[in-house]
Structure formats: structure tokens, C-alpha cells
Design a binder for these strands. Structure first.
Lengths: 141, 141
DNA sequence: CTAGTTGCAAACATTTTGCCACTAG
DNA sequence: CTAGTGGCAAAATGTTTGCAACTAG
């Protein structure tokens, strides 16, 4: 995601509006570390005294996703969806099983080797992957 | 998962019962390839003329999971949970974005290298991971 | 017999939809 | 003004629970 002004002006030039909820949500995704759930988004907005209806939040998530500004993240053992700003470096998540904090991680060595092996052994052409690590963060060890 | 007779006799010896639904579900998990959703399980049982109520299926899934016979699998972009027989070799899934088929894959080279790197660079101690590959299966390419 | 199991209906959690009112540009 | 947006309530999904009835061993 680019900076907020750029995003807003691109939206405006296509006829979309810079409403309070929309700009708040874009700001939120630019600031927040790690993927956020709809529930978390709503409680953050509440703390900022932004008034909203949950249907609006879900609709805005769809809107931002369709425009490629955010992307879905699904974590193991969680019910709902999470969302994070898109166009970040390709990364994965470190999920602490104790304190539940989620950190981003960029691997030095990605999975090309494994993906090539998959192609050679099965003929399956890998287009993407999701990889989440569960464990104990430094503070919880 | 061991063979059905062993499982049933272990359950019996602990006071649990070998009911129609339970044995059908254990058989199903032994047979089915790839992780199954509650919905899929129910439609397979229906075809086998096993009568059931959905609450029973969900309760049985909890039971089998707590006993370590099955484990949860969560796929990206899917709403619900899936389950697969536990105690298989550690493996991942190949999800065809076209035909939606899910195949198991055992990697020759697992992720130790990446996990060591994570520990060195962040202090996060990896205990497990989930890794799913999206792409095109041989038939759909 | 009786603890384990089931069915049923209702509650839950999360997300989506229809419809009409509202407002940014 | 008017297309895009928001609020509200209800529907749709997927899963869980309370409770009384049933049944395997």
C-alpha cells in the first residue's frame, strides 16, 4: 500500500469517495502490524470514536480487497478472516501460541526449491503458497 | 491412524462405544484422500445411507480430534474447517485453483533451514507450521 | 442398568444482502 | 443533483449447546 494521500486521490479520480470510515480503515491498515480481524478493526475504530455499522466494515473490506489494497489472511485454528495491507514484501507470520501475538517474517530463503521439487515429482504447478509458523516468541520462551 | 479394528477396540476398552456414526466416520477418515469438510463428511455418510444429525457429526469431530485421531486443517479462502486423519507423515497440501482438488504432498526437504533462520534472526522458537500450496494440478495445466 | 450417545431446536459467531436514506463532490 | 455510501434488520453460513430420550455393552 502506498501512502494515504496517494490512495485517496486515486480513489477520488475514479469516482469513489473519501469517507470517514474509508479513510480511517486505510490509515488503520497502514499503521497496524500484522493481519487484523474484522472484530479488531471495529474495536480500533470504536476507540477512535469513529461511528460505523458492521455491514459497512465488511463492505469496505470487500471494496479494499477488490481494489488490491488489502488481502485476506487465514490463520490456523481461527474462525474468521484477517486482512493485511497488500503489496508488502512477500512474507509469512509468526504466531505465538502463548501470547497470540502475530509478527511478520520475511524469509531469506523462500520455497523455490520445494516448489521445483513439487513440479518435478507431481506435475503440480505452484502459483502461490501460504505459510504460517506457530511457536513461542522471544518474550514467552 | 491405525486400522479400524484397533481404534475401535482401544475406544471400547476405555468405555466409549462403537456406534454406527462413529465407526462410519473413522472408516471415512481412513479412506478419504485429503482433508474433508463437515459438509463433505455429511454428504458421504448420506450416500452410505447412514442417518445422522449435524450436531452429532460436529460432536464426533471434536471427540476424534481430542483423542488425536484426526486433526484440523484450514485452507486459505475457505470458510469452514477441514479434518484429516492424524498420525500421517508430516505433509502439506496442493490445492488446485481450477478444479479445487486437494492432494497431499510430502516434501523431501522440509523447512528446518527456514526455521533455524527464524530462530537466529528473531528469537522466535518455531514449534510447528502450516503450509499450503495453491496452483494448477497436472490435469488443469 | 447406566454412562455414553443421539436428535432436536435454539443459540452463536461471522459474514452477506436488501432496501431505503443520506451525503460527498 | 446523483452515484456512491451508510444504517438497519434480516438472511445465510458454519458451528456449538442444553436437554431430554435412547441404546450399547
Amino acid at each position: 500500500m502506498k501512502d494515504i494521500e496517494t490512495i485517496i486521490s486515486e480513489l477520488s479520480s475514479e469516482g469513489f469517495r473519501a469517507t470517514k470510515i474509508r479513510t480511517s480503515m486505510i490509515e488503520l491498515f497502514l499503521k497496524v502490524k500484522g493481519p487484523a480481524s474484522a472484530h479488531e478493526i471495529m474495536s480500533i475504530l470504536s476507540k477512535k470514536k469513529v461511528r460505523f455499522n458492521k455491514a459497512t466494515i465488511y463492505r469496505e473490506l470487500v471494496f479494499l480487497k477488490e481494489r488490491g489494497l488489502i488481502q485476506e489472511v487465514r490463520l490456523p485454528h481461527e474462525r474468521g478472516m484477517r486482512f493485511e495491507a497488500a503489496h508488502q514484501a512477500h512474507h509469512h507470520h509468526l504466531i505465538c501460541v502463548n501470547c497470540k501475538k502475530i509478527a511478520d517474517i520475511v524469509l531469506q530463503k523462500e520455497l523455490e526449491e520445494q516448489e521445483n521439487e513439487i513440479y518435478r515429482s507431481t506435475g503440480f504447478q505452484v502459483l502461490g503458497h501460504t505459510l504460517e509458523f506457530m511457536g513461542l516468541c522471544q518474550g514467552c520462551r
